[in-house]
């Protein structure tokens, strides 16, 4: 099986795995976060390749747009960037390697096990339309309840983070003592 799709697959896989290695090994946590960005994008590309377009878009929106930005903000807000060295110390190398290798073994075994039937022909079909239709019909109620949930979360976040009196703005970042 060779063709342009295979080339793209290997490029994406290399991007994903390569930047994942950087995430694990880079000493600076900001650099690691940037490497994580490439890992997420690579996974999104792999999703596109197996014709899961909705999943790919969600991956970009949620992981790249949401979680990664959240990590960055958490790092920025929880440290004094100027003085504290942002580091990503490495401990417990051997146990970690053992666990990771075991996990890799299990996953690899599962992936090549006969439980999965290989499809000969991949037909590319957009999934978004079908998912959208289901959201508006069978899953209408969970969809709407989720919007109530988001409303509650928004109100709660605004309530907890706003200053006590609106006329005195709170300093947006306090120096730790």
């Amino acid at each position: 099986m060779t063709g342009p799709a295979d080339v793209i697959f290997y490029v994406l896989a290399a991007l994903t795995v390569g930047s994942a290695i950087f995430v694990a090994t880079l000493p600076n946590i900001i650099y690691a976060a940037v490497a994580l960005l490439f890992t997420f994008c690579g996974v999104a590309g792999l999703y596109v390749l197996v014709s899961a377009d909705f999943l790919a878009a969600t991956q970009v929106l949620v992981y790249v747009g949401g979680i990664l930005v959240l990590i960055m903000f958490a790092v920025f807000l929880s440290n004094r960037i100027s003085s504290v060295k942002l580091s990503n110390p490495v401990h417990f190398r051997l146990p970690a390697a053992a666990i990771c290798l075991t996990l890799f073994g299990v996953l690899a075994y599962t992936a090549i096990s006969p439980a999965f039937v290989l499809k000969q022909e991949i037909t590319y079909q957009p999934t978004t339309a079908r998912i959208g239709e289901l959201l508006m019909t069978r899953y209408l109620l969970p969809f709407e309840v989720a919007s109530v949930l988001l409303l509650a979360a928004l109100i709660g976040a605004a309530l907890l983070s706003r200053p006590d009196r609106p006329d005195i703005p709170r300093p947006d970042m306090e120096e730790p003592k």
Binding site: Y139, P142, V145, V148, L149, A152, A153, I155, G156, L160
Partner: peptide
């Protein structure tokens, strides 16, 4: 449906987390 149950649980919990604080 367990999906409704889960979403209901989250919708009840998140306001309570805020109200406790």
């Amino acid at each position: 449906d367990l999906m409704t149950v889960f979403l209901g649980l989250e919708t009840l919990s998140i306001p309570i987390y805020v109200l406790v604080g």
